[in-house]
């Protein structure tokens, strides 16, 4: 009898039916969302464009020419016209994707790591520690993001590196707050209590039971910040606190073309259109990700 059961069991163990994991479910649901897929496709195109800029751009983006300034869209040889210094707009927009994407995207993952760590620890430990951490975070959070970014960049001085640092600092409190609230919710669930009751230590519980359940929502929030970051970065460059001329960056281009808005409004608006398109793509993708990560749907 016992032998039969043991054998039976051995067979059962060998053939455990595995459900597809959580992330493959997310991927499956995401693949059924046309809007998110289009947005993701456009993001990939933009990234490819930035990487392949030297091969795609018809001209050197910094080569100026006094004789062909502010040509309109559709000028033969200059498909999207030229800017106020006679540089080819198409080439500048393609090259501009490089710095714009770097400034838009890089601060978010850094802030994601730091902000999540702060928020998760505060949320899990609770009590006085939570109050101390979160009130400090709130001090930063109380400033409007634009003001904080400008103030920090202004203090640190202009330049790409300083702009990245100030954007990161702007996003850390926002992510930390979301991380803290999600963790506090998870912290109260019975499975965390069950894990504590089994004698597990705090860091084991955070690793096994908390991280997997909070990183998803924080990640979704972080992706929605990319569009904000793009716009803030453009704003910094616009104010002369980010990328310096003659480098191509959409925000900076918007600034330098500002004077041409009455002469050739279509061309002057082009960098704005790019910023708008890119940030909306990141937003739509982030929305799709949010619904795909909801198990109940």
């Amino acid at each position: 009898m016992a032998a039969i059961i043991t054998q039976d069991k051995a067979m059962a163990v060998a053939t455990v039916a595995r459900s597809p994991g959580y992330w493959s479910g997310v991927a499956r649901r995401l693949s059924r969302d046309p809007v998110a897929l289009v947005a993701l496709g456009l993001i990939i195109l933009l990234v490819a464009m930035a990487i392949l800029a030297p091969y795609l751009a018809p001209y050197d983006p910094t080569k100026a020419s006094m004789i062909r300034r502010l040509k309109p869209i559709g000028t033969p040889g200059y498909l999207l016209g030229t800017d106020e210094l006679g540089r080819d707009m198409l080439s500048r927009l393609i090259y501009g994707a490089r710095l714009s994407l770097i400034m838009g995207v890089i601060p978010v993952p850094i802030a994601f790591v730091i902000g999540s760590a702060i928020g998760i620890v505060a949320g899990y430990v609770g009590g006085i520690t939570n109050t101390l951490i979160m009130r400090t975070v709130d001090v930063f959070y109380a400033f409007p993001s634009v003001l904080l970014a400008v103030a920090l960049s202004g203090t640190l001085g202009s330049g790409l590196g300083n702009a990245l640092v100030s954007l990161t600092v702007v996003f850390i409190p926002q992510i930390a707050r979301v991380a803290e609230s999600v963790t506090t919710q998870v912290r109260r669930l019975d499975y965390v209590d069950a894990a504590r009751a089994s004698g597990a230590k705090g860091h084991t519980i955070i690793l096994v039971h908390v991280l997997g359940n909070v990183l998803g929502p924080i990640f979704v929030f972080a992706t929605s910040l990319i569009s904000v970051s793009m716009i803030l970065a453009s704003g910094l460059s616009f104010l002369g606190l980010g990328v310096r001329p003659p480098d191509a960056e959409w925000g900076l281009m918007l600034n330098t073309l500002r004077t041409a808005i009455y002469v050739n409004p279509m061309v002057a608006a082009l960098p704005g259109v790019m910023i708008f398109l890119t940030s909306i793509c990141f937003n739509l993708f982030s929305d799709g990700l949010r619904s795909a990560m909801d198990v109940k749907s």
Partner: peptide, 21 residues
């Protein structure tokens, strides 16, 4: 429902306690 970690398989949830020890 709230007393099981939604991200862990059933066997991992049951095995968690013994592994901690």
């Amino acid at each position: 429902y709230a007393s099981l970690n939604p991200r862990l398989t059933i066997e991992d949830s049951i095995a968690f306690g013994p592994r901690v020890h």
